[in-house]
């Protein structure tokens, strides 16, 4: 008897996770890197230092998801969501529920729990990239497991936007973002070249894309 079969016998509820589909990011390189897009019914972490293109990637995903008629929720721990940037990226703001927690990470966790448990959202983003480090460290692994199970049950793509990996083993995919170089033209910033690295695959892979200004 294989180890997997033995485990199934001990814990009947243990089953291989069903593939509930993927949400395309609209960026071919990232879709290829993540084997088709961001998984539904799973927790994905997008991390990186400031100005590494994390938010640009998520806005591209938000734009693609809302164009397909998905309802999305953006739980904004620090209140940094910019609706103008999201609209310029192509997101349909009517289909984006924005929860501005104004710097309270605990409220953000409560909100993401309520929205993920409630179901009906195709994508739920927890943005803790600008949250205080001590607040992020206080989030227990049990909370991440709870959120992951809620996402599995409701089929939502739960995405955490952060500076460094926080959910650890609870996440299905970790995309580490790194800025390669900014593009300057004329009087203002024109865009940035970004590298994304997938960390949860057997062998880490990376892909490049460019986020540009209008």
């Amino acid at each position: 008897m294989t180890a997997l079969a033995q485990l199934r016998e001990i814990a009947p509820g243990f089953q291989k996770r069903e593939d509930s589909g993927k949400l395309s990011t609209g960026i071919p390189a990232i879709d290829q890197l993540s084997s088709g897009g961001i998984a539904r019914g799973a927790l994905t972490e997008i991390c990186g230092p400031p100005s590494s293109g994390r938010t640009s990637l998520l806005f591209a995903l938000l734009s693609h998801a809302t164009r397909q008629g998905e309802c999305c929720a953006w739980i904004d721990a620090a209140g940094t969501f910019d609706p103008h940037s999201a609209a310029e990226a192509g997101a349909d703001l009517d289909r984006v529920l924005w929860v501005n927690c104004n710097g309270n990470t605990e409220h953000a966790l409560k909100a993401v729990d309520l929205l993920t448990q409630g179901g009906g959202f195709g994508m739920v983003v927890l943005d803790i990239a600008d949250a205080a480090e001590r607040d992020i460290r206080r989030i227990s692994l049990a909370s991440w497991f709870r959120l992951r199970h809620a996402a599995e049950r409701t089929g939502a793509a739960l995405i955490v936007l952060e500076t460094s990996v926080t959910a650890r083993s609870c996440s299905t995919l970790q995309l580490a973002m790194k800025r390669k170089r900014p593009i300057w033209t004329g009087k203002l910033l024109c865009g940035i070249h970004v590298e994304a690295e997938s960390r949860k695959h057997y062998r880490s892979q990376s892909a490049d894309f460019t986020a540009v200004c209008i």
Binding site: T80, D82, A89, D130
Partner: peptide
């Protein structure tokens, strides 16, 4: 109150986002 999905503009490259 999400209504029907509206057609928004699509871009070949992702747009650079601002965190305000």
């Amino acid at each position: 109150s999400p209504g029907t999905a509206s057609q928004t503009q699509t871009h070949s490259n992702p747009r650079l986002a601002l965190r305000r």
